[in-house]
Each structure stands twice: as C-alpha cells, then as structure tokens.
C-alpha cells in the first residue's frame, strides 16, 4: 500500500483542502489574528500597563485558581462517575449516563441564572447552606460551583471510553500477584487512565478559564471581593470601548488557551501512538 502515500488515489484533495483552509481562515484565523495585530501595535509599556492593572491581575488569579480547582474536583468526581458507569450495573444507570452531557446542551446563560438563584440565600440549596454559615452565590465558592457544572462532562467523556477498553488482564494479574484492590486501582488503573485524565483536565480547565455565561451571575462580579473573572473584565472593557485593554487581556488569555490546546493534543498524540504500537 506504499503507493498511496506518494500518489493520492482518492480524488478531491485539492478542492476539499482549498475549501477547508479558506473557510478556516476567513471564519476563525483571520478574525483571531486581528486581535493579535491590534495587541502588537501597542507599545510594550502600554501593554504592560493595562495587563498589570491590579483589577486585571486579580481577575487572572481568580480565573486561573478557580478553573484549576474546578478541574481538579471534576477529575475526582469524573473518575468516580466514569468508573460507576462502566463497571457497575444499577437501576437508573442509563438515565445517569444520559444526563452527563447536560452542561453541553444547556445554554450557559440559563445555567448561570439557575445556579445563581439556587445557591442564593433564598434558594433551595442556598438557604440550608446559609443556615450553616456558608454563602455560595456571589462568592468564589459560587464561581467554583458553576465551573464544576460546566466542566464535568469533559472529564467523564474522556475517561469513560478508556476505562471501557481497559484490558482486565492487568487487574487480574495484579490481583493474583497479591496486590490489594486499592493498590491495583492506584498503581494499575490510574496509571492507564492518566492520559485520559490529563486530556479531560486540560479541556475542563481551558473551558473554565474562558467561561462567561455560567459564571457571571453567580460570581457577583465584585472588584472588591475579587470575584471578577477574566472574560467578565474583557466584556467590561468592551462596553467602555476600551479596546486596548480588552485586546491585551484577551491576548494573554488566548496564549494560555493555545498552550492548553497544545498540551491536550500532545497528550492525545502520545496516547494514540502508545496504543497503536501495542
């Protein structure tokens, strides 16, 4: 089959490649490049001045820490959910499985106002929590709840297929060799799941970092309480027509997103190489 590499048998390469690149460039790459072009036209001092503004720095800190924490929480619950869905049978399992993707299907603004209402001091979950002295809406905790909500499907859907395909031989071998069940899980299964976990983590983190609709209602967006997220600050600058600040902040957020995307892709390429070589 070597000749298929030197000469393409299937027709339509030029045409479909051309259309793909043209549409990708016109709809995605050129508009994104405009952000870069505008940001690079600014002087270094001007750029640094806008991004090192204390409100902006706090927003970055809030976004990064909350997105990281939410992704970590999702790794824990995502692994449990995937494990339960793959390994156990129980009534309502299909229903549970079907609900996992709700955060993908539900519009972010709807999720945002609903979570905000639920966790406010008068809401169904907020009221009992407030009785315990825990305030959720309009705090960092609320932000975290929203980010866990939107991130969970990324982790579950990354781990589930890997767990399904996992060869039970390894576990049996470990078991026969005398490893405890816990040891088997942490040493054997978790190390097999690592690439999938990293992928899920990366995707959930990237999504959480740029999230807008589901967090702006529940976070309260207070500059004083440091509950503003980066995308909120960008939107605020846009509304004030402060395009220089909006673009510089966006540029940094874009660079972080690209790095995350690169990271996820590297993990996936490595994973597919490994599984194909076996």
């Amino acid at each position: 089959m070597k000749f298929t590499h030197s000469k393409r048998v299937i027709p339509g390469f030029g045409l479909t490649m051309g259309v793909t690149i043209a549409m990708l460039s016109l709809l995605i790459l050129i508009p994104l490049a405009s952000v870069f072009v505008y940001a690079f036209r600014m002087s270094g001092a001007e750029f640094l001045g806008t991004v090192t503004n204390s409100a902006v720095l706090y927003a970055f800190r809030t976004s990064i820490i909350c997105a990281l924490l939410a992704a970590l929480i999702n790794c824990v619950f995502g692994t449990i959910l995937a494990w339960v869905l793959v390994r156990y049978d129980f009534p309502g399992k299909r229903f549970l499985d079907g609900l996992i993707e709700l955060p993908f299907a539900l519009p972010t603004a709807v999720a945002g106002i609903t979570l905000s209402k639920m966790y406010s001091t008068t809401g169904i979950l907020g009221k009992p929590l407030a009785g315990l002295g825990i305030e959720v809406s309009y705090t960092h905790l609320g932000l975290l709840v929203a980010l866990v909500f939107i991130g969970i499907p990324f982790v579950v859907r990354a781990i589930q297929p890997v767990l399904e395909k996992l060869d039970p031989q390894y576990e049996e071998a470990a078991y026969i060799l005398g490893a405890s069940r816990r040891k088997t899980f942490f040493r054997i299964i978790l190390s097999e799941l690592r690439p999938a976990l990293l992928t899920g983590f990366g995707l959930a983190f990237a999504r959480g970092l740029g999230e807008y609709g589901s967090v702006i209602y529940i976070s309260g967006n207070s500059a004083k309480e440091h509950t503003q997220v980066v995308s909120y600050v960008i939107m605020q600058k846009l509304n004030y027509m402060d395009y220089a600040s909006a673009t510089s902040i966006a540029l940094i957020l874009l660079i972080i997103s690209f790095l995350m995307l690169l990271f996820v892709n590297m993990v996936q390429v490595r994973q597919s190489k490994r599984t194909n070589n076996v």
């Binding site: 508009p31 740029g210 960008i234 846009l238 966006a250």
Partner: peptide, 16 residues
C-alpha cells in the same frame, strides 16, 4: 480552536 477559547474573545475578534 473555538472549543478552547473564551466566547468573549470570539466576539472581540470580530469587533477588532
């Protein structure tokens, strides 16, 4: 790319 960047940046890109 559109999967992993903030939707607000998508809006900004067209404004710019």
């Amino acid at each position: 790319i559109p999967f992993s960047i903030s939707p607000v940046i998508a809006g900004l890109a067209f404004i710019m």
